[in-house]
Design a protein around this nucleic acid. Structure first.
Lengths: 160, 160
DNA sequence: GGGCGGTCCCGAACGAAGTTCGGCGCAGCG
DNA sequence: CGCTGCGCCGAACTTCGTTCGGGACCGCCC
């Protein structure tokens, strides 16, 4: 994972469908070398996949929310079962299992507010392991598509 | 946005780097047709981009957290400025601007717990518009890569 | 009913890209 | 000084992206 690999990864985060030749030219190596590097990054699990980013309103998902939920008992079987059942609901885009005052943060997208209400009432509130939940409508969601590697020797950044 | 477009979108969500010919074969149309459809989806903004999904530990980002923050006054200029400044911090992966008891939910990834502490103390707590924040360590994060379009005529799914 | 325009899809042709592989240069080491 | 291993390169071959002309289907209007 040297500087060259980082550059390749950066370009693939920006646009995963640009040609291998373009990336090779941008980072200053031969296409065959670039292809081999990319293959190794994939093989090592550094690159986990390539995915299209889709406009949510176009999928009838114009309303987003974060739902925080508490479940009891907080045992492994309950957590795993709850997580798995969330994964089967089409409205659920992403699930965070967290420490702190909430056990789950669920990122959902639905057609409209009515469907959000229906999701909460029919899918969440009915489960007996769910002892409480709270939802926050999302006004905006900014997602950074290209993540740089953080320095690994460095002390914490510190003030200023 | 017919059934064919949905199928193309689905395949591009699964693997954005598979060849146009493969997608065409899977959905049962000619490559040239598939290419034109894909081009239109891109042009219409349905497909917003293609991005590589990178393993966070490989980027020295083994620790993730969700930080909820309240800012005051809750005016547009304060919100916009805070959001913009968050976007410049390398640890920040994603920002949700929400209604509810929290104004912002910030998804961060850092090297370790020390760096999380440093981020909170040096980047967040120092800002005077931030009147409170709370962070939750993330144990697991499940992300659904392929989202289906939700039915648009449908009433809310309802119980059972 | 027949002609007409529009829309969508297909297949061929051409240039460009992915993929493989043999060889070269270089650094490290004995 | 030579040997070895590793990584990079460039050429050859296959596959793919891209364009474009033509044909099928459908609704519309005369």
């Amino acid at each position: 994972m040297d500087e060259l690999d980082s550059a390749i990864v950066r370009h693939l985060q920006e646009d995963a469908r640009q040609s291998n030749r373009d990336i090779a030219r941008k980072v200053g190596i031969a296409p065959s070398t670039c292809l081999e590097r990319t293959r190794l990054l994939r093989e090592r699990g550094v690159i986990r996949g390539y995915h299209a980013d889709i406009d949510l309103p176009s999928l009838n998902r114009g309303v987003q929310a974060i739902v925080s939920a508490q479940v009891r008992p907080l045992s492994r079987v309950v957590i795993d079962a709850f997580q798995r059942s969330l994964g089967e609901l089409p409205e659920v885009m992403s699930v965070f299992v967290t420490a702190g005052s909430d056990d789950f943060l669920i990122h959902v997208s639905v057609r409209d507010i009515d469907h959000l209400h229906a999701f909460l009432a029919d899918r969440l509130a009915v489960r007996k392991e769910v002892v409480g939940f709270r939802s926050s409508i999302i006004f905006r969601h900014i997602h950074r598509t290209v993540l740089e590697p953080l320095p690994d020797n460095g002390k914490s950044p510190g003030p200023r």
